[in-house]
Write a protein that binds this DNA or RNA. Sequence first.
DNA 1: TTGAAAGCGATACCAC
DNA 2: GTGGTATCGCTTTCAA
Lengths: 337, 337
Amino acid sequence: MSNEKPKEYLGIREIAKLAHVSPSTVSRVINSPERTSEEVRNQVNAVIKKYHYIPNQLAKNLFSKSSNAIAVFIHDMTNAYFMLLLKELSRLAFEQKYTLLTCNINNSQVEQEYLDYCQSIRTKGIIVVDGPFTDLYKHTPPSIKLVSFDRVMDSWNHSSVTANQLQGIDLVLEHLVGLGHRKIAYAADKWKSYGANTRKHAYQQLIGWKYNLPYREDYVGYFECAIPCGLDIVNYYMSLPDPPTAILCTNDTMAIGVLMGAQHLGLKVPEDLSIVGFDGLNENFSFPKLTTVKQDYHQIARHLFDNIVDPVKAAQVHHDVVDVSLSIGQTTGPAKR
Amino acid sequence: MSNEKPKEYLGIREIAKLAHVSPSTVSRVINSPERTSEEVRNQVNAVIKKYHYIPNQLAKNLFSKSSNAIAVFIHDMTNAYFMLLLKELSRLAFEQKYTLLTCNINNSQVEQEYLDYCQSIRTKGIIVVDGPFTDLYKHTPPSIKLVSFDRVMDSWNHSSVTANQLQGIDLVLEHLVGLGHRKIAYAADKWKSYGANTRKHAYQQLIGWKYNLPYREDYVGYFECAIPCGLDIVNYYMSLPDPPTAILCTNDTMAIGVLMGAQHLGLKVPEDLSIVGFDGLNENFSFPKLTTVKQDYHQIARHLFDNIVDPVKAAQVHHDVVDVSLSIGQTTGPAKR
DNA sequence: TTGAAAGCGATACCAC
DNA sequence: GTGGTATCGCTTTCAA
């Protein structure tokens, strides 16, 4: 009777034995084949192939003291724009043989636990997307690179990537003012994310300072949700004594809600009301095509990624600001007289 | 001069030395404190806390021959329903101390590479969501549990979770027929996912077999995209010689597109046209509230997860079918006479 | 209750 | 060009 239990996975020693060489040689065939003779190499490769040998990454990780992982901390996995970003990050990571860990953060306790976990597996870096102010990251070891997107952390002593929100709002206002609008409202979301807040401030500043339009408190509304309260948003603005002729929404999802609400009320868009979004989710994601500010997620993802994996870039703290562009659709038109 | 380079991470030996005990004791204090004396335990814990010692998970993994990870293979990260599912899976994984690896699959080569990687890190299981037929998983070692959702693989020799699509379509048809509709169209997506295909077949069968309505080829359209082609979809159906009075869409996103298209054409919903979706994305994600079939993602996620981590359940192949329910909104009403 | 030592599986240094 | 061997950091018998 044999005591050999059939192993599920073969190790490098087994392969070595089967190929009549030493483990070191097998390792070399895999990692620096140029340092092995062709004969031995073929022989070993044959065995590897025959037994479908897959090196144990767990051992590699221990030896290299790194899991080659990059974590993404996301606070709102249902936000379509962040998902686009995540997808792109996923592509980049795969391309460069990194593992992407998606961490859904609900609260700061979860955040802390994930942070500890990232340290315990010697993560290369953490991409922190959105979320409230925090100082949890204060004591993160320097070997873990931190990059934030749309979020302010305890200090700016780590890298960040942001879309140029001021530029975006400016482009929108320029476009609307050019169409004759002078009554431009801003619909903000109640949960004040960093990005949304920045946009609101940009609106507030530019409207008076650059475009010489009166800033009206009643034109800035805070709304709880996205699509479903579209009707409420339109109702709110339209029942003002002096209703706006254009509504700038803090993101595309809200804009779509407002669009649906307006249509439901029988308002013609853009004849009766112009609507603008923010994100540029997807060229093909709204109908009628929304006028919106496009934040190039390819570029944003690339910057986030490079701040972690590019040794030159990762060596210093960077604050990348990505240009945005205005995508003019069918929801904006000349102001109603 | 000292040759000591300041280590970024302390190891269990350092902690042991600082606490004047052996590494074994430190390990015990962490993993089975009941087997240590209170005095030693406090002493060691104090040191652990003081130096913020985080055990190296990489070493643990090697020893335990497992990364305690569960992979999710997703083919369409921008599909809102899958994201909801992913979020819930993420929650479950965190709760039970598993690591969730989100793998975005673009093609079968990527899929194969991820599969190899999952083996190399001794993944506990893989949740395969959506995607075309494949036989890539044929040789997956039995220690990696496979569970699919909305996908057919080479054999049904692995577990699966599916929503009861037939039931869903039945509920919809019952609802519509009850409202007097006899001309019910089905808008399918061109990219035939398993789930969408099943629904289409259910429609095809039930319409004639159970509801005694004629099955018309021209009532089943295949459309490329979701929201933006909503107008095209409505145009197509409305220009038929005998247009339908209700359109059942293969998912909620498409339904919203159709809704917007209909409104754009000046059609009243539901007076002129009833619209039904499928997914039940989110109670609060459409306006007017869409009538749709809700697939309970909490339950689906739970089943998927248990098929991997619950030892009893994971020991056998299961095919869980999850009940769906009809959520009646404002987009369906009595058929136009 | 505690400590010493072997090993998890791959790598890289150092001889040959 | 190839093979022996210590090593990564932790866990776990086995002795004391």
